[in-house]
Every structure is written in structure tokens, then in C-alpha cells.
Simulated scan of single mutants.
Amino acid sequence: MNLLDAAAVFAAGVAAGGINTVVGSGSLITFPTLVALGYPPVVANISNNIGLVPGGVTGAYGYRNELTGQRGRLLRLGSGSLIGAVIGGLLLLGLPAEAFDVIVVALIIIALVLVIVQPRLQKWIRARRAEEGTQPPHGGPLLWVGVLLAGMYGGYFGAAQGIILIALLGIMLDDDLQRLNAGKNVLSAVVNGTAAILFTLTWLFGDTEINWWAVLLIAAGSTCGGAIGASVGRRIPPMVLRGVIVVVGLVAIVNLLA
């Protein structure tokens, strides 16, 4: 890797860290960058996943005020993220990369639809719960299963994982969008961190190829980007944040279909 390539990977890491903190889909910047520089897709995907972990931690820390009172909820949902990440990571290691291309696009489209209709669906769900006299503080088993599936997706590829999570949390939980975004950052960090540990363990046994220079550059960039994203994202009004989510998701679809 020459100096120009290193600068490009670092810059992509900064952008991805910021976008992941505010919305998600940062991998759609770093992953194509690595592929364009000649890295095999699976190597690029795994190296990118590990490199984005520090940025996820930085972003979650930047939203620490919004995380107040969410410990019990995130512990419960985090178990789903952890299990899903292990399953998704094993699928990545065992299946051809081409197998998930169509599913990735379909998942992003579904997530964007959920984000757009979230206010109406949330109102409907609240009305149903009011009639039934129940209001699960953690979203109930349906949300846990959804978070697990999002974890599987994140462990396999990761791009737009944040969009899927924020859509699920926004529909199933009665809370402020910024607090939900903070929770999304924690759950995304759990997924990326779990998958990173899995990939590193398989690398130690010689079954996985990782480019550690790419990992280090993305890690450094995403750490800076995560801090920047947390500072900017916490000041964005809910309607604007929802609009950003939709725009980033549409760009993600275009990039995947290109």
C-alpha cells in the first residue's frame, strides 16, 4: 500500500465513522474503497468490519448522555445482536460473497420503507398496545428477533445495518429518535465487535485472510469520524435525521446496484 492509497483508506475511514454514528451505511464508503484498491471482496469486507469497531465505540461514547436509562433495554437487545453477529460472521466465512448481493439490496429497501412509514406504524402500534393494556419496555420478543436478524446481516456485510436498526427501534419503542440513535450505535458496536473477534480468531488459526494495514488505517479514521459524527448527529432535529437516513439508504442502493 503506497502513501496515496493509505490516505484514501484513512479518509474513507473518517467518513464511514461519521456516517455510521449519525445514520449507518459507512461500510458503503470503506468497502468499495478497499475493493477499488485491489483487495479481494471478502478480505476487504472482513478488514473493513474490524477497522470500524473503534469508530463504533467512539460514536456510542459520544451519545452517552442519550444512553441514560437504557441499560436494561440494551443488555436484552444486545444479546440478540451478539448471537446474530456470530451467525452472520459464520455465513460470511462459509458462503460465497455473491450469494448475498440481492438480499443486501432487498434489506436496505425494506429498511428505508420502515423509516419512511415509522411515525404511522408507531402510532398504530401504540394504539394497539393501549387497547391491550401492554407496553413492553424492551419492545417485546418481536423486536428482539428483528435485532437478531439485523445482527446476522451486520455480521455478514454490515452496510446499512444502522438504517435497519433505527427503523426497528423507532417502530417498536416509544422514545426520542436521538435516544434510539444512541441505542443503535451501541447495538451496531456489539455486532461489529463480535464479528471482529470471530474473524480474528479464525485468522489466528489460518482460516481467514485479513489485511491489518487496512484495518489500522480504517480504525484510526473511523475513531476520528465517530467523534465528529456524534458531535454533529446529536444536534440534528428528528425530521432532518430521518431524511438523512433515507438519502443515505438510497445512495447505498445505487452503489450496490452499480
Rank of each mutant, 00 (worst) to 15 (best):
I125C: 14
T202W: 14
D174P: 03
A196C: 04
P237A: 00
P238V: 00
I228V: 14
L216H: 02
V248H: 11
D176S: 13
V190S: 04
A219G: 13
D174T: 05
Q135P: 00
L217D: 09
G162F: 12
G243C: 14
R234P: 00
G155Q: 12
L177E: 07
V190A: 04
N181Q: 14
L149D: 04
R242Y: 08
A219L: 04
A160T: 09
I236N: 13
W213P: 03
P238E: 06
Y156T: 14
G140E: 01
D207H: 08
W144F: 09
I164R: 04
A160F: 10
I236A: 10
N211L: 04
L217I: 06
V190C: 02
I166K: 05
A150V: 03
P119G: 08
V190Y: 01
S222M: 10
G225M: 08
G233Y: 02
M152V: 15
G249E: 08
L169C: 14
L143R: 01
V145H: 06
L169V: 12
T200E: 02
F205H: 06
A189T: 13
N181W: 11
A130K: 14
G226V: 11
R179G: 12
I164M: 13
L121P: 07
L148D: 06
V232G: 09
D176L: 12
A130V: 02
K184N: 07
W213H: 06
R129H: 12
G193M: 04
G183P: 15
I228G: 06
L169H: 15
C224A: 15
T134E: 13
A195I: 01
A230M: 11
P119E: 05
L198S: 02
H138W: 10
V246R: 12
T200M: 09
A214T: 05
N211M: 04
A182E: 04
L198W: 02
A196T: 05
I163G: 03
V191Y: 00
C224R: 10
